[in-house]
Design a protein around this nucleic acid. Sequence first.
RNA 1: GGCGCUAUCGUCUAACGGUUAGGACGGAGCCCUCUCAAGGCUCAAAUAGGGGUUCGAUUCCCCUUAGCGCUACCA
Length: 473
Amino acid sequence: MVRARFAPSPTGYLHIGSARTFIFNWLYVRKRQGTMVLRIDDTDVDRNTEASLQSIYDGLNWLALKWDELYRQSERLELHRQLAFRLLENGLAYRDFTPAIADPEEKAHGDGPWLCHPEMRALSKEESDRRAAAGEPFVIRYRVCREPAYEVNFTDEVYGPQTKLTADIEDFALLRSNGMPTYHLASCADDIDLKISHVIRGQDHLSNTFKHILIFQGAQAPLPRFAHLPLLIAPDGSKLSKRKHGPVVSVTTYRDYGFLPIAYINFLCLLGWSPKDNREHMTLYELMNAFSLEGVHRSNAVVNFSETDPIDPKALWLNSQHLRTMPVNALAPLVKKTLEEHGLAPYGDEAFFEHVVDTIRTRFSTLLDFASKGRAYFSDDYPIEPQALEKLNAPGARELLHELADRIASRAEFTEASVEADLRKLAEERGVKAGVLINASRAALTGQPVGPSAFAVFVCIGRERVIERLRKV
RNA sequence: GGCGCUAUCGUCUAACGGUUAGGACGGAGCCCUCUCAAGGCUCAAAUAGGGGUUCGAUUCCCCUUAGCGCUACCA
């Protein structure tokens, strides 16, 4: 039974790299009919916020990929502490009474690797118990094996065989002096308790995995399979950060930009993974069937945004592909919602709305386009663009449009064919090129110089409004 | 500094020792056409550098370089 988890910490918005990790976990699990666990890793009480948690839910809900079980680490602290003290009892961990170093830089850039405080490691059980009983604050550290050539091994599903000497692993903290578990402890304790079978996460945890294996071993728990994912990075090669790169790192940005969830999922999947058969535009079902850890890359992938454009052009392209190929009845509700957010509403019934959406979607690339470029299809209040005005100002154009309105009004039939017949006949009678009248019609009906075939536009605008708009110019 | 990971067109990627190094986005051009898209076709564009191994290296090994990650009582 496959059980995978996505474990975000609520210290910010939902990062696009995190979203991709969630998606990969989800695809992996769903293909195998396994269980998707969402675990909120909120053991850092100082940095967690409810707003952040909410934005993570917002992002995940937008993607519309469901999880099966939900946990919050803050509700499972007893479990984490139990493991820490069990390791302490077993002698696999020890109390360290050394005060915390305030400045992390100091330790990181100190000379030589920091491994442990030998005095603390050597403290007798009695002495350790006595000082703890006396109320002296301590942190519990893992007692990493100091045998000369002892190594930890595992095979990563993506990166292959991994080895590290314990001599290069420091005595990392398990339990903080405030009684809260560290990430390593809480994560492993929960992975064990929740019977996680596959740990699929960012490559930034690849080297942490050695520590995690030590914890699993200390707890005498079976190891899950590990798979690490290459990171998503900025065009300059640096890691994506809110501070440096702004909104491009948050999934809600893409939602607000008018992306379809499936298109964005598709885009994210193509960063660091490939189906290896040249397919790019894929449905969720196709992604699910095609996804495998073997297809995951080992090198980081650049999200190709720029100062002037926050959107990767490929993401936009994929969105336009999905926009024009997905079933109209699946797209229509999303368009309707977008219209409502802009104070617009469809004319006519559902079938008519779907016809309009189907007609105009081929030249749109985001949902927002329906409310902007497509405004005239959903409102009588639309701007006339300068280039459209030029078409209307063509000699005799207005008079012809008025006359066309009369002819359309005088006959009951209103189809692309009937309108085309009326228009071409009128053009011929007046000795003007049909194209002039066609372009003027589009300009009058939509306020735009560009758009779908003009005759299709007539039908999409609707008979009454067509007559009204043609007479108004 | 220590340890680890990575390296194919601008970007995402394919090629599990033998290909004119393929596809996609983006760019340029052509076709189609009532406009604009879409679509079709064409072009430009890459194996980081140096050593090996091999009849033959994008592919395997080593070194260099570069980037990234970990090195916190953050996750």
